[in-house]
Computed example of a mutant assay.
Amino acid sequence: MSHPILPFIPAVFVPVKDLKRSTEWYADLLGRQIAPQPGQEDHGIYIFNLEGTQIILDSNTWGSPPMIMFGSDDIDASHAFCEEHPHETVTDVFRDEFVSVFHVNSHMICQTNRDLDLPKAKPAHSLLGGMSRIFIHADNLQDTIGWYEAFVGRSTEPDVKFGELPYIRMDRGAHLLIDDNRLSQSPRKFYEQLQLDMRVNPIAIIDTPDLTAALDHVRSKGAVADKGIESRLGVRFFLFHDPDGNALMVCEKVSR
Rank of each mutant, 00 (worst) to 15 (best):
C110G: 04
F237H: 09
E97Q: 07
R32Y: 10
P36W: 10
G31W: 06
P166K: 00
V254H: 03
E51T: 09
R172D: 11
E84T: 13
Q193P: 09
L127Q: 04
L30E: 12
T112F: 13
E97G: 10
L215W: 05
H217T: 03
R133H: 09
V104D: 00
Q193D: 13
V101A: 09
T144C: 06
I206R: 05
G63I: 00
G44H: 10
K221E: 05
Q40S: 08
V14Y: 07
M69S: 14
F238H: 01
L183A: 11
F102T: 04
F94D: 10
Q111A: 15
I75E: 04
L233E: 07
H137G: 04
I68D: 12
V14N: 03
W147F: 14
A80D: 11
F70N: 03
V16I: 08
T61W: 08
M249S: 03
Y167L: 14
E88H: 11
A77I: 00
P66K: 01
K189N: 13
P166M: 12
D117I: 11
D28I: 06
H87T: 10
L29W: 12
D143P: 01
E84H: 04
A138E: 05
G245Q: 00
V254L: 07
G130N: 03
G234I: 07
S255G: 09
P86F: 10
L19R: 06
D76G: 08
V254N: 06
D115C: 06
V101R: 08
P86T: 12
H3M: 04
S100N: 00
L248W: 07
I56V: 15
Q54Y: 09
R154T: 03
D242T: 04
Q37L: 15
F102K: 00
M170D: 00
G222E: 06
P7W: 08
T212L: 15
P7L: 03
I47M: 10
R169K: 14
N140L: 01
Q142N: 14
E164N: 15
E157M: 13
I9T: 05
D171W: 09
F151S: 06
G31C: 05
E192L: 08
L50C: 08
A138G: 05
A138C: 06
N140G: 02
H241K: 13
E252V: 07
A124T: 12
A11T: 03
F190T: 02
T144P: 05
K227D: 09
E252H: 01
T61E: 03
V14I: 12
I56T: 14
G44V: 12
K253E: 13
R114Q: 14
S132D: 10
D74P: 12
L6K: 07
M170F: 10
P10E: 07
D171I: 15
L177S: 07
I34H: 02
D210C: 13
F135D: 01
L19V: 12
I229L: 14
I9Q: 11
L233Q: 02
T112I: 15
L248D: 05
H103L: 08
D96K: 04
E24L: 15
A124P: 00
V16P: 00
L127I: 05
R182F: 03
H217N: 05
P4V: 05
F94I: 13
F162E: 04
F94C: 05
L57M: 11
D143I: 02
G71L: 01
A174D: 01
T53H: 03
N181V: 04
S132P: 00
R154Q: 13
V12T: 11
D180S: 08
A35K: 14
